[in-house]
């Protein structure tokens, strides 16, 4: 069964239609790359999945559970959405770490707040805290940041910040981890360390959706590639299909521009 199903999603800002009838699905453990020029709607699609934007129409399903249905008002309520968001994690282009907390605390904060709301928290407070801290430290070590846990974001390089942000998203065990151009804000020499971490995640069969301009990365790492243009999915397939035998004219033009550069 597909882990994610997106059906006929529409979204416009004022009069500008940004997403026009988007439908696709993906399997558990896959890495899906979304490519396309700026303004093609890929970032908006990602933000819709994370409920930072509300689609105007359409259905979003995860593991068969309907998270959003434009025809059903109940699914649009804030309190409902909050829980459903946790199916997804999102790594931002500009990291958006919380500057007043250490790397470790950045990773721990959301888990702590969620645990606090559960029953029986007070009785096991210390235990829970230690458990969260242990897991956060483990995640940061996986990201190669074992030495930097007590550092504040402004003391870290861009690449290190982005790895903290990935750990922060993973701490909530999302079903699907989304990346919104995770290396675009980085100096070229720092992109490698972030892409390496993402590749490791793909190898461990983390389900991922990646909006990216790194064509080599998309080709090497992803199982599926979607090319978007003007708010529509133009072409979808394996990296081989999209990069070597693209069918649509628009895909060819887009890829040609990239290889020129």
């Amino acid at each position: 069964m597909a882990i994610l199903e997106v059906e006929h999603v529409f979204k416009s800002f004022g009069r500008t239609a940004v997403l026009k009838d988007i439908s696709f699905s993906m399997e558990k453990g896959q890495a899906l790359s979304l490519i396309g020029s700026s303004g093609s709607g890929k970032t908006t699609l990602l933000r819709c999945l994370n409920f930072l934007e509300r689609p105007d129409k359409g259905v979003i399903r995860v593991n068969g559970e309907t998270l959003f249905d434009g025809m059903n008002g109940d699914t649009k309520r804030e309190s409902e959405i909050r829980k459903k968001r946790l199916h997804f994690g999102l790594v931002f282009q500009s990291f958006n770490l919380f500057p007043q907390y250490t790397a470790l605390k950045n990773v721990m904060l959301a888990r702590e707040l969620l645990e606090k709301e559960k029953e029986g928290y007070k009785a096991r407070k210390k235990e829970i805290h230690q458990e969260i801290e242990g897991q956060a430290a483990e995640l940061l070590k996986q990201m190669g940041l074992g030495e930097k846990m007590k550092r504040y974001p402004h003391e870290l390089s861009g690449g290190q910040c982005q790895r903290v942000a990935i750990a922060r998203a993973l701490a909530l065990h999302p079903d699907i981890l989304c990346f919104d151009e995770p290396t675009s804000a980085l100096d070229p020499e720092l992109t490698g360390e972030v892409l390496r971490v993402m590749k490791e995640l793909a190898e461990r069969k983390m389900t991922m959706i990646i909006v990216t301009h790194e064509m080599d990365f998309a080709r090497d790492v992803s199982d599926q590639v979607i090319f978007m243009d003007d708010g529509q999915i133009v072409e979808q397939g394996t990296p081989q299909q999209i990069f070597e035998t693209p069918e649509a004219e628009r895909t060819r033009q887009f890829l040609a521009r990239y290889t020129e550069e």
Partner: peptide, 18 residues
């Protein structure tokens, strides 16, 4: 405060209050 701070909190399942 950059809007990204609020968005980061939201996708981590925090309430507006938190």
């Amino acid at each position: 405060i950059p809007v990204g701070q609020e968005e980061a909190g939201l996708v981590l399942g925090m309430t507006k209050r938190q």
